[in-house]
Design a protein around this nucleic acid. Sequence first.
DNA 1: TTAAATCAGTTAACACTGTTAACCTAAATC
DNA 2: GATTTAGGTTAACAGTGTTAACTGATTTAA
Lengths: 199, 199
Amino acid sequence: MSEENPLRDQILEISRSMLFNEGYKSLSMRKIAKKAGVSATSIYLYFENKDHLLHTLIEESVEDLSRFIEKKALPVGSCIDRFKAIIRAYAEFGITYPEKYEIIYKVRSDSMARYPKEKFRKARRAYELLVKTIEESVEKNQMDVDDPLVAAYSIWAQMHGIVSVVLNGRLDSRINREQFIDDSIEHVIQGFLIRAAVT
Amino acid sequence: MSEENPLRDQILEISRSMLFNEGYKSLSMRKIAKKAGVSATSIYLYFENKDHLLHTLIEESVEDLSRFIEKKALPVGSCIDRFKAIIRAYAEFGITYPEKYEIIYKVRSDSMARYPKEKFRKARRAYELLVKTIEESVEKNQMDVDDPLVAAYSIWAQMHGIVSVVLNGRLDSRINREQFIDDSIEHVIQGFLIRAAVT
DNA sequence: TTAAATCAGTTAACACTGTTAACCTAAATC
DNA sequence: GATTTAGGTTAACAGTGTTAACTGATTTAA
């Protein structure tokens, strides 16, 4: 991951912390440079432009998220339990490492529009784990899903919605945070399990 | 809504279209002004600053979304059908009016962090309709929900996740868009309906 | 050993950004 | 007819991303 350069790493770390603490709009190359004790243009020795710097931050966070999910879910034997573990791990990562999670979605880089999928190349591993888990569950008649690919994307989207509402502090003040997360996870899971219709 | 000023309205419209067509980052007061055939500082006669201009755009879009949902769901008699209508209307609005929907979530204004909930004051109507519908369904034993308030928020979050994945073009190329939306809506709904456990 | 090349940074400058202060001018009001 | 107000203007400030040209040290090559 690290290209073996201390200044480059320092720039990334400073950017991460400034993004989280001061927000996206006030992040400037000059401020980063000043904090690193270096001239603004030095950043361009390691990153083509501001966009690429942000993009690097995003990729690192996505990689972290993937690793986190794999660590939590890969060892789980039962496919339904693994399914639940993936979903819970996703939420747990977002809540536990908001400064990393928020970078993935909050940072708006110009290059994003140009190669939007490239961004999630590294999320592929976790995504494919979810697809495979769903396929396995469907085979065992434990899940009610037409297309595992679609289902996996849908779950990912739903979970992102849930986590981001929490992180953005948009939760109704009457609503308890933990209860919201747990309930939501439960409902997302329930939406995919096999069911016997009540008539 | 409109404060009866043609230039003010024109500024809003130009901003909206520039936001959608050229993106958030390239939106500048000077460009807006140039397109309106007026000096940059004239914008400040109608909006305190760039943030307030963006904020106004957001509020208008949120109001539109609320009206859209009410129009589609209010006339529906059966509470379960109304529940489904609200969810479907949300998605339909996002897909049909992406330039309005995206403003709600994509525009990052500095004031957002300061009064994050204020932003959704006007969404309250649609939100409370959802809460009431869920409460009614729970009373009639047609829905499996602990806390309707929490459930409503959860649904809102999940739907946002789904719509934004579609609008951002982050959908896997192998996945059909309409199928994704329909399947996702169905799974979200299923997650809240009453179920008989399969053991 | 010395000359050339590369590395790691610098300064100065350009074209842009949001925003403020001061000014102007035509219309409305007293 | 004088004065206020509405609806703009221009000039300027401080900050932005980025480029080009430069510097000085270190490494490499002859």
